[in-house]
Design a protein around this nucleic acid. Structure first.
Lengths: 339, 339
DNA sequence: TTGAAAGCGGTACCAG
DNA sequence: CTGGTACCGCTTTCAA
């Protein structure tokens, strides 16, 4: 069972040395046509496949990449993974997925054991907030989505600020002034940048942010659901809500349904990230679409480039910022045209 | 960068032999307390972690499991993966996810390259239909969801027949006789068993299956959507529809919405597998719930058991069949009580 | 063009 | 209880 025949066996049957077999297989040195064919024939007959573990010992490379995400069941991350996998496969790498449950401890455990375990590089949507952690990883890393500013680390992020800014501005342009935001923790760029975008859009239009309209919590459906209830049952319900990620948005939609409020009429809503529910309801909910797949693609390209081109300008940190797109459907009511 | 210090370095600094260091680390033989502490101290100081590649060369084990699924973006499979990961991690294994796009070719490519690449075992939701393929994999394998009957392979499946039978019976008990089924290809047990369950339930209640009510296609939302349109726009629309997987069910729900048909009133619907949309709509759509997470858990348990207990009754094929549960909500109208 | 041999970083057997 | 050493399967000088 498993790996049986070795290069030695091939060499013996082909009546050559193991060195020659190795040469033929890797095309390194010149080998006479005859011996080459002879070796290849035996390789085929024996169905020989080199043992990658042994190869790794010598090359110090495993051709394996780790993709570490908070939650493998969140469509946002599976899209990133899929993007990463497509590039990796193309370049002859294998991808090894690890889910941390957005837990700092589990993430640490991974990196401790990954120390000896050989992955050539890592694509990481990190749970840690300390720059020190990322710098302690002694393997090439590319950060995705979450990024530590000024850290000099490689990363692929999206313009969260812009996304939130555009969404909020869209509300304002439609005459909304009582705009609430339901958002996740403000301890990472994904959260803070979105809040800043929201806040800046308000300020640019001379609207003072109101504490009552600010709902910070987890990036969960539950938070979206409960916050929406609180907002709408408050003394001064907003006319518009920005749900700052896919789960929160889903929660908001469900809450509005349960509150018997009609989206696009009684309440306006914009979400962050596409999601099944937002796509399903009528009117379809406008969302800030993030290029999830592309994030995985870019990150992997950068990583592999780091892995292969050792020279070059590898000292220059590469932080790629991708734009997002506001997909406008009918979930924002126009308050201006008396609508 | 990467793996630098070796066991040799530790041995030198601790003034012992590499053999001793190895002993301390693996706790194999007895080592004096003093040397043990001495070694451990150096290990800590140097932050030494054994090179797993080297260990694998000797042990012939990598502690890595592959989970091969058709689509990493389908929630059904991510649930299976998560189940597998949880068990694997507990047992000290790492999981390596591979997505085949339900493509026979891609699946083959994986196994060809996995030949030399060392994973200790494989959990597989296969795309291949030939028993020969599965038997040619010279690594311990546990099949999940899709299974080749009489093959003697290990597998974890669910009782598709029962699930479809129960759902169909539920329709019948509510007075339905014109029951349609939208289903995937009939070339694998997941498809055939569900159809048989549907068919048997009809026959057991003296209802003759009608060709018009049978919609075979892909396991996609598109198929669900289009088939629903065809059914409802047909000359003799059914009063009930069984959507035989999550994607088909979602498609059906969207189609019914676009057709302005009210679920549970104008048309009754039951889906297979839980999904966001079915959960969201009102009334919530009844579904046959499959124990997805458990499938991953069981499969991994079986696999690891095969890997560790070499002796024992390992020759006895283990096919585990898990039951499913019909979650009844309000999507089936009772035609009997004049309802 | 080819072969012999020295490792890669560990483990495990055999002495001592 | 500890050290020396022969490998694991392969790549890569160094010679021939």
């Amino acid at each position: 069972m498993g790996q049986k025949i070795t290069i030695k066996e091939v060499a013996k049957q082909a009546n050559v040395s193991v060195a020659t077999v190795s040469r033929v297989l890797n095309g390194r040195d010149r080998v006479s046509k005859e011996t080459k064919e002879k070796v290849l024939k035996v390789v085929k007959e024996l169905n020989y496949v080199p043992n990658t573990t042994a190869v790794s010992m010598i090359t110090k490379q495993t051709q394996m990449l780790a993709v570490v995400v908070p939650d493998i069941e969140n469509p946002f991350y599976t899209a990133v993974i899929k993007g990463a996998v497509s590039v990796a496969r193309q370049e002859g790498y294998y991808v090894f997925v690890f889910s941390t449950n957005d837990n700092v401890k589990e993430e640490s455990i991974f990196f401790e054991s990954a120390q000896g375990r050989n992955v050539d590089g890592v694509i990481l949507v990190g749970a840690h907030k300390e720059e020190a952690f990322y710098k302690s990883i002694n393997k090439p890393v590319v950060l995705v989505d979450r990024y530590i500013e000024e850290s000099g680390l490689d990363g692929v992020v999206i313009n969260n600020f812009r996304g939130a800014y555009d969404a909020t501005t869209h509300f304002i342009e439609n005459g909304h002034r009582n705009i609430a935001v339901i958002i996740g923790p403000q301890d990472f760029n994904d959260g803070t940048e979105r809040y800043w975008g929201y806040e800046q859009a308000l300020k640019d239009h001379n609207i003072e942010p109101v504490n009552e309209y600010y709902k910070e919590g987890d990036w969960t459906e539950k938070h979206g659901y409960e916050s929406t209830f609180e907002l709408m049952n408050g003394s001064n319900p907003p006319s518009a809500i920005l749900g700052a990620n896919n789960m929160i948005c889903q929660g908001a939609i469900k809450a509005l349904r349960d509150l018997k409020l009609e989206i696009g009429k009684d309440i306006s809503l914009i979400g962050f990230d596409e999601n099944d529910i937002a796509e399903f309801v009528e009117p379809r909910v406008s969302v800030v679409k993030r290029p999830t797949h592309e994030m995985g693609v870019h990150a992997t390209e950068i990583l592999i480039q780091k892995l292969t081109k050792k020279e070059s300008t590898s000292t220059v940190p590469k932080k790629v910022t991708l734009g997002c797109e506001l997909l406008k459907f009918g979930s924002v009511r126009n308050l201006r045209n008396g609508g």
